[in-house]
Design a protein around this nucleic acid. Structure first.
Lengths: 271, 271
DNA sequence: ATCAAGCCTCCCGCTGCGGGAGAGTCAAGT
DNA sequence: ACTTGACTCTCCCGCAGCGGGAGGCTTGAT
């Protein structure tokens, strides 16, 4: 009889497992053309092969099933392309993270070449031109790229009094979301767009220098953290970064210099 | 008191979540320096920060926890480097798969430009020089690369009577493991090393031409499968591939031509 | 002494896949 | 018509790792 393809045959044609096909049926992702009501046997039509292949490919890209369902339910090729492009972007982002992880892993596993030099520094209250934001941890880089452009534009022609700096709230790391400030010290902070006049309070900072790209900056953070703990100090307030040499000063990432500053205070019970 | 870092502080310093740290303790991956026996509170030493960071990085690379445990338990830097290199290789392999998936996805979602041309072909019994193997689905490419070198060497100077071909058992796709044959038709098949004289039985083939690289060859497979099902035919025997234009004929993948042949027979109940 | 914040354990959820048990069904050969 | 073996059905469990939430105890600052 012309019942269609049994699940096993269909599985072989599409390189999906029988089990997986059953799950896809159950979840409504790929319904068999017919189901024998008495036996419960699933039968697929040959026209379902391309659909199954698309599903297979999308799953290979780790597209979650819900999204796969969305994609194959979408008629319009444009919307479909959009959905897929969105996922490809996520893939790329992951690739970047992989890259960064590899780099700092190498750094971490290298026998500690240099000793960490930490400087205690008292910063007075300062008035700067800055852009504030409240962002998710994952969006920091995007936010930063945007903000720096705007800051640069509004400071066009104004002589800076010091290097570019940033302030990152602790919640950014603990809760994955928090306040961020990108600033540049200038004599007369303008107020334009998101740029405003910000007064940085005076702080006690434990600072150290990070050399090279930011891929592995948290290695330095970790080392500074160790130092702070060992000195029986506590962290108190947002983390400071000062971009002494950045991408716009030198295209070679190895030349970059970033000063990391942790606001600290002596624990009461310590001498 | 000098108890060390509470789990929350440690979590913030290492960018691991409190929950995750507890799990790592439970699984023995990262034991706190001390555990208060009465309260059960975990306290970490600052010297554990680097270890935690390594773990974090490895997890970012999706290294399974068991392997992470192995790596950080390994003293010798060389062995450690090996373990990590092994994983990086896996990452690369996955990248290749991602690449292939993207390509054939594009192909699959493109409105079907060309119609599939299928030719029925009766092949007589043939005697060829071939290398047999029994491989896992994932190892086919490696096996192929090896086999073709050996085949080429043993046929050095012998004039081929036809293009390179391959035979792939159905179990390779269904069970993920099966017989494979790579062959070249020659007048006088030599017997040397793994190369032997193979008699290919006569077959009825439904053949079609796949153009371009093999990344998306299963799109063509799927279409051929559709055709075969629609013609109420059944597949019977190993799949044939004939490499009319391959990497050694033309470096440009777009120029490659592969003929796919499915052994078929008419279903009895059909006219 | 009080109180919020932090910590504890235990249990369940999630995503996708696979294995296995036990029973029913299909199709080919006798 | 019957047997037989290959398929298929459903249902339950396991896996990796992470997260959420409940209910209760500790900590440490005021």
């Amino acid at each position: 009889m012309q019942a269609g393809l049994a699940i096993g045959e269909f599985a072989e044609l599409t390189h999906l497992s029988v089990r997986t096909l059953r799950r896809y049926h159950e979840s409504g992702l790929l319904e068999p053309a017919t189901v024998d009501p008495s036996s419960g046997y699933r039968y697929y039509a040959s026209s379902q092969i391309p659909t199954a292949q698309v599903i297979h490919r999308l799953r290979e890209l780790d597209v979650p099933l819900v999204e796969v369902a969305e994609i194959i339910a979408t008629e319009s090729p444009e919307v479909r392309a959009e959905l897929i492009a969105a996922h490809l972007q996520r893939l790329e982002a992951q690739l970047d993270r992989t890259h960064a992880a590899v780099i700092s892993l190498r750094q971490l596993l290298r026998p500690d070449a240099e000793k960490l030099r930490v400087q205690l520094r008292s910063l007075p209250e300062r008035v700067v031109a800055g852009i504030r934001g409240e962002v998710d941890h994952g969006d920091v880089l995007t936010w930063y790229d945007d903000a720096i452009v705007e800051l640069d534009e509004s400071l066009d022609g104004v002589a800076p009094v010091g290097p570019l700096g940033g302030c990152y709230a602790n919640e950014l790391f603990s809760a994955g979301h928090g306040d961020v400030l990108l600033y540049r010290p200038v004599a007369e902070p303008p107020v334009r767009g998101r740029v405003s006049r910000v007064t940085l309070p005076s702080v006690e900072l434990a600072t150290t220098l990070h050399r090279g790209p930011h891929d592995n900056i948290d290695v330095t953070y970790g080392r500074l953290g160790m130092w702070v703990v060992d000195q029986a100090l506590a962290v108190d307030g947002p983390i400071h970064e000062t971009y002494l040499v950045g991408p716009r000063d030198d295209p070679d990432p190895l030349a970059w210099r970033t000063e990391i500053g942790w606001p600290i205070f002596r624990l009461s019970s310590q001498p």
